[in-house]
């Protein structure tokens, strides 16, 4: 009788997986924990250094990728509170327009307009969404999908803030290094900041709202206040992307509220893996460059892009990041059967 083998998958011992004192017992285990965190940081920080090698075009792609990744992080944070948002363009547009307005009308420098645009934009969005925080699931999603489109039409018809022409000739950012490193650093801060936040007690309560909001309410916690706070924090990430891109393009117009900024972050999050923050970031770093590479195919680009997307989502419904994470913490071995 022939010997048959079966593949067995085992989780690595909990010792190496918990962030506890035991984990620091050897370099091997330290590296096991540290590498997945340190490597992406080093990779991200060194990407701008490749400026001379890959050319300015790809550096521009890096900036756009970071902006989309920030929006994806903002989407993921809201999803962690149970708010499925289809309107990240709202954050992006609000931050972009406020920054553009401050620069265009008062001539304030980017050092002032970007922070003000970020905070003001996030505050504006939070106030706008305040009345609909009671809605759940698809109802909240529909409202957020509509709002950026509504604002774009509002600007177009009332011809405020430049109408459909937009505001151009805004101050440029000071220097290429500033252009490249600010979005990368902002992305890293958001990524690790959000991960920390969601694992704190505060984050546990936020996730509690997603899983069972009635239980949280019966725990004497004002869930609407917490939802508003979460929207503001997510808004800061999204509005910053908008504020930065305004000065990067030296232009702000109705495309800031475009549907792309709503749909692309969502796609990144779904592809990368919802709920981990690293997933959506990974998703953005796959999808945005991929879409640029496919430009060579002309009109067929969308066909290839969509096909790859569908294959990924069907093949790895949990998301690429969760798959990699699971494999990293597992080891496989063959065992004899019967």
């Amino acid at each position: 009788m022939s010997v048959r083998y079966r593949k067995e998958r085992l989780d690595r011992g909990i010792k190496a997986r918990c962030e506890d004192i035991f984990a620091l017992s050897s370099y091997r285990e330290m590296l096991y924990l540290l590498l997945p965190r340190v490597l992406p940081v080093i990779a991200l920080l060194s990407l701008p250094l490749l400026k001379g090698v890959v050319g300015l075009y790809w550096e521009k792609v890096l900036v756009v990728t970071c902006a989309i990744a920030l929006l994806a992080l903002s989407w993921d944070l809201m999803a962690s509170v149970g708010l499925v948002c289809l309107g990240q363009a709202l954050f992006f547009g609000a931050g972009a327009y406020l920054t553009g307005f401050l620069n265009h009308s008062f001539g304030w420098p980017p050092f002032l307009t970007i922070p003000l645009g970020t905070l003001g934009g996030a505050l504006f969005c939070t106030l706008l969404l305040l009345p609909v925080l009671r809605l759940r699931g698809i109802y909240f999603a529909i409202v957020t999908l509509t709002l950026p489109l509504l604002l774009a039409r509002f600007i177009e018809t009332t011809k405020i803030l430049g109408g459909n022409v937009g505001m151009s000739g805004l101050s440029p950012l000071p220097g290429i290094w500033f252009e490249l490193y600010v979005p990368v650093v902002a992305l890293l801060i958001c990524l690790f900041g959000f991960r920390r936040l969601i694992n704190e007690d505060y984050g546990l309560v936020l996730q509690g709202i997603r899983d069972n909001d009635r239980a949280v309410m019966s725990g004497a916690i004002n869930i609407y206040k917490l939802k508003a706070q979460a929207v503001f924090i997510a808004g800061v990430a999204g509005a910053f992307a908008g504020a930065f891109m305004t000065h990067y393009y030296q232009f702000v117009g109705m495309p800031a509220f475009a549907l792309d900024y709503s749909i692309l972050p969502l796609t990144c999050a779904v592809l990368g893996g919802v709920g981990s923050f690293a997933g959506p970031t990974l998703g953005a770093f796959i999808l945005v460059p991929l879409s640029e590479i496919l430009r060579a195919f002309g009109t067929l680009r969308v066909v290839f892009y969509s096909t790859i997307l569908i294959i990924c989502v069907v093949g790895l419904p949990e998301g690429i990041f969760h798959y990699i994470q699971r494999k990293y913490h597992q080891f496989e071995r063959l065992v004899e059967v019967g």
Binding site: D201, Y202, L204, V205, Q207, G208, D211, N212, A215, V216, G219, A220, I221
Partner: peptide, 22 residues
Amino acid sequence: VRPFYQLPAFKNLIIPLYSPRV
């Protein structure tokens, strides 16, 4: 009962313990 299954039992109590009343 709909506890937060992916959390340890004691972490389930963080939510009420986080409330202003406590």
